[in-house]
């Protein structure tokens, strides 16, 4: 399996320009007032503290999912199950929150976050274990497992944990003492933002300053070399998966405690794929994940504001991601084939 390596500056630049031009072109084509829509797209995220705060909250979630993905990529493995892992982490957070009764706020929060993290880690870990044990392709197994988990989580929200009094397909609200401290007015921005920044530095230290990180990076770059050095590498088919899934699970539980405060059908959808996009923009480097997540959150926020203020109702998010995925790993941008002499 060819691993995903970092991209050149040129590739990142071309990709970002193309990603920005997608909403611009589509708005120009389909809006009744293209100029206004495009202005909203670019300035919308900064028009109010509510918009800005939500964008930063989204950034925090993208940082965590991006980190999860970058550790998998660094180890030379794929985790395409982020969607399911984040959703399962979130529903675990909801269920635990609804059932820890009298536990104090801080302890409760720690328990809930840990549970979400472990859920994500366990799900991704299964694929890692299958890979190690029987060489089951992790790219496909993470996706299939995630597909199943998404529906099972839908079931939990729609049936056993459904709040029948709500018009939404959702669970009951979690106890208020578990809510994360808010930072910016009515927006969703909360202290998980700082925790996710802290996670970046932890991930950086883990990857670049720890012996395990050293082994993982070498395994991702050249398995032959690791084997030649006499380092047992098989466990590095599992450990990065656990970490990757754990980060997704953590993002899911953060979004419950900090933002949604309940489980709603499909409420974390998109975070899984977004994490991959962010990692790729950041060239798999934990530090660059912060600007990568900011850029991506800005694109998402811009399209959302542009939509609210227009007559349109479609989503760009997938098209933007598609363009990023199409271009970000390109090694060159030659439109014509090599012409040979002779």
């Amino acid at each position: 399996m060819n691993s995903v390596s970092g991209s050149s500056i040129k590739t990142v630049a071309v990709t970002l320009v193309a990603a920005v031009s997608i909403p611009v072109i589509l708005l120009a084509l389909s809006s009744e007032d293209p100029l206004q829509s495009i202005t909203f797209f670019f300035t919308g995220p900064f028009q109010s503290t509510y918009n800005l705060g939500n964008m930063l909250d989204n950034t925090a979630m993208l940082i965590l999912t991006g980190l999860g993905m970058s550790i998998a990529f660094r180890a030379g493995t794929f985790n395409l199950g982020g969607e399911g892992q984040v959703y399962a982490g979130a529903i675990t957070a909801v269920i635990i929150s609804l059932n820890i009764g009298n536990t104090a706020g801080f302890t409760g929060i720690v328990i809930v976050l840990t549970a979400g993290l472990l859920t994500g880690a366990l799900i991704a870990g299964i694929s890692g274990f299958l890979k190690k044990q029987w060489n089951t392709d992790e790219l496909i197994s993470t996706f299939l497992l995630s597909g199943a988990i998404i529906h099972l989580t839908d079931f939990l929200i729609a049936n056993p944990f459904r709040d029948r009094s709500s018009f939404l397909i959702s669970t009951e609200k979690i106890p208020e003492k578990l809510f994360l401290y808010k930072l910016m007015g009515s927006s969703h921005l909360n202290i998980s933002f700082f925790l996710s920044i802290a996670a970046v530095f932890l991930a950086y230290i883990f990857l670049f300053k720890s012996t395990t990180g050293y082994e993982i990076r070498l395994t991702g770059l050249n398995r032959k070399f690791v084997e030649y050095g006499g380092i047992p590498y098989k466990r590095h088919l599992v450990i990065p998966m656990l970490i990757s899934g754990g980060m997704y699970g953590l993002a899911g539980s953060f979004s419950v405690l900090g933002n949604f405060h309940m489980g709603i059908k499909g409420f974390t959808a998109g975070l899984g794929w977004n994490g991959i996009a962010v990692t790729l923009i950041a060239g798999n480097n934990p530090i660059f994940i912060i600007p990568g997540a900011l850029i991506f959150a800005y694109l998402e926020a811009g399209t959302e504001v542009a939509m609210i203020h227009s007559d349109l109702s479609f989503e760009f998010s997938n098209l933007i991601k598609a363009v990023i995925f199409f271009l970000i790993t390109a090694k060159r941008f030659k439109l014509r084939r090599k012409v040979t002499l002779g």
Binding site: N2, L319, L327, A330, R332
Partner: peptide
Amino acid sequence: ITLRFRANIFITGLGANLFALGITNYLSS
């Protein structure tokens, strides 16, 4: 894109899947 730009086929494959979701959503609206 994959063959000419020598891009990673797994990532461009995901791109194609998301592109399909996005373009059908757009045209449908």
